[in-house]
Amino acid sequence: MVDWAPFPKEGDKVLFVFGGGILDGELLKQIRFLDNELSAYEFHPVKELDGLLIERLARRVKAAAGARELGETVYLEHGQTAPAEWQRPRTSVDGRGQGGTFAEAGPESPGRRLDWKSMATDLRSRHDVSMDKATAYHDALGDHFAAHAETSPYNAYTDRPAMLRLAGDVSGVRILDVGCGAGHHAAELAARGARVIGIEGSATLLRHAYARVNGQAGLLLHDLEEPLGFAGDASFDGVVCALVYEHIRNRVQLLGEIRRVLRPGGWLLVSTTHPTADWRHFGGSYFSHDWRDLPIGDSELSIHYQRLSLETFLGELLAAGFVLEQLIEPRPTADLREIDEAAYDRLHQVPSFLAVKLRRP
């Protein structure tokens, strides 16, 4: 982040905030200060800065944190966004474009280029922004899901192929993967040319995602029950929300934030458990909105989510201002028949998931 601070008495000043990388436990142990150099130091999440710093400093640090997450260089004046003419493509000083080319983008320029390899793809050691254990897949559950999703008839052969088909051609498209899990969708989208940022509330899953995307997507540990403060308005061309919607409690806020960060004309993909699958499994009323714990196989693990009727699921999305373009009930790809014919036949007879593509007007 670069901030120009004109000061008549002392002369103009230019302030820079640089990303210092990730400090893991071992690096923290190596920090040593001279006597009386510092009395104390602490680490705080960005959302607490307003209560810790004076206003102009808080603005600058928050702008720098947001720029780092999105892989942008941000130019400010007195801690405020600089005039639009400053936000032009800029290349590195050696003229070869090394380090990437950065430019602001709005609805008129959906092809913004970002330096994804140098952005913050590292796992953040910020446990204070992870999601509640009743919502996200932490620890053993996260490890189990990461392995399961790799080859599962439900994830690998049904939901994931369906969502990728709905996304279509994503070359050069800026995509936010909300609840990116172990990074399976993010890796696939990046491999197809998309510029992806994945956010996930489980540090366990994000470790798996970090290994899977191999630097080809940006990753951020982020509580999905909190606003998407790291992203500016109209920052993305598309948003993917695969099998996470039913786990979120504050869905109204999440949808409002997704609509904010999507450019006009951008698309939103959402997949969820099929309402009739839950009805068949749990029984009771089809219209129940109970929160349930679904055991996983023979293990002691379970996933926690809310049952949603079709009316509720679509009603929430439409009420948030999105327009429905396509609705599908995903069935497994033909490849599954070669591996597990019984699962292939079962998932072609009984619906398991529901997926929709919506558009932001």
Rank of each mutant, 00 (worst) to 15 (best):
M1N: 14
V2N: 13
E10T: 11
G11K: 06
G20W: 03
G21W: 03
D24H: 12
Q30I: 03
F33V: 12
L38C: 10
E42N: 07
L49Y: 04
D50A: 12
G51T: 02
R56G: 01
R68H: 11
H78L: 13
A82S: 12
A82K: 01
P83W: 04
Q87S: 07
S92D: 13
S92K: 01
V93N: 14
R96N: 08
R96V: 12
G99M: 09
T101W: 01
A105K: 06
S109I: 01
R113V: 12
R113D: 08
R126E: 14
H127L: 13
D128Y: 02
D132G: 10
K133T: 08
A140P: 07
G142A: 10
E150D: 12
Y154L: 09
Y154K: 07
Y157C: 04
Y157W: 05
D169Y: 02
V170Q: 03
G179N: 02
C180N: 09
G183P: 07
G193L: 08
I197S: 03
I199W: 01
E200I: 09
G201V: 02
A203K: 09
L205Y: 04
L221W: 03
D223Q: 08
F230E: 01
G232P: 05
V239I: 15
L243A: 15
E246A: 13
E246G: 01
I248C: 00
I248Y: 07
R249C: 05
R260T: 03
W267N: 11
A277N: 14
G284V: 14
F287M: 06
R292H: 06
R292P: 00
L294C: 03
R307T: 05
G321L: 07
E329C: 07
P332I: 07
T333M: 04
Y344T: 10
R346N: 12
R346M: 11
V350C: 05
P361V: 12
